[in-house]
Structure formats: C-alpha cells, structure tokens
Amino acid sequence: MKGALEVRVRNSLDELARLAEQVEEFCDAQGIGPGIAYNLNLAFDELITNTISYGYDDQAVHEIIVRLAVANDTVEAEIIDDGRAFDPLSREDPDVDADLDDRQIGGLGIFFVKQFMDEVAYRREGDYNVVALRKGLAARD
C-alpha cells in the first residue's frame, strides 16, 4: 500500500505538536506502528528545532515542508527549509558514556536522528536545505 503526506509548518516551535499529530495519524492509517511514528517525530523535532533556532537571519515567518512517503517496506521523509545552508550531519556525536558532571546536550538531537533512522542524507538545492530520511518497516510493528 502506498501513501504520502505533506505538512507545512511555520518556523515556530509550537508547530511541532501539530506536526506530530498528523504524522501519528498518517502512520496509523498506513499500518505503521507507534514505535516508528515516535522515531519519525523525534527526528522531525530535532531537525526542525535546529532549523528554527539557527537557520534564519531574519525575524520573518518561514515555511518548513515535511513530506512522508510509504512504499513497500520503507518510509521516506524529507524536510525542506529555506534557511541558510547548514548540514546537520556535520556535527560531532556527543559522548554518551560521559558521567553526569561531564555530560552535555550538544549534538544529541542529530545523534538521535542517525541512531533511529536507517539512512540520513543532506543536500542543498538552490536556496533550500533538504534532509532526507529513510526507515525500514520490516516488522510493520
């Protein structure tokens, strides 16, 4: 069964809840389990938060486009924004073995994206950043 979703969100952190709800409904309708829906929403939260926090030089409203597509045994997603060129994969992983005193949060968001998605890729297309994600649905949990 094939299915696709496109959600456009404003560059505001309070849009994340609305996006998550639509992603959950889509996953449910496609027979994709809540665990994978969580993984997708986590990836979107982390990537979009970075974009909103660091991606723009102005105070204007910007649109961020999230697309999901299901085919065979995978779900693919793209997040497209018109912020400044930034490759989220260029950040270093955090030290997940650090003890409490040394532990920091920096880099954790992108680390989650890489851990919970099977494939992550970044490209710049003209004035846009495009992050592409892929997750296998082998078990359709």
Partner: peptide, 10 residues
C-alpha cells in the same frame, strides 16, 4: 507529575 509531550515547544 507531567502529562503530554516534552518537545522543543514545551
């Protein structure tokens, strides 16, 4: 006691 989502917005 927290209820709901703890995301970047909340």
């Amino acid at each position: 006691d927290v209820t709901g989502r703890i995301d970047s917005g909340t």
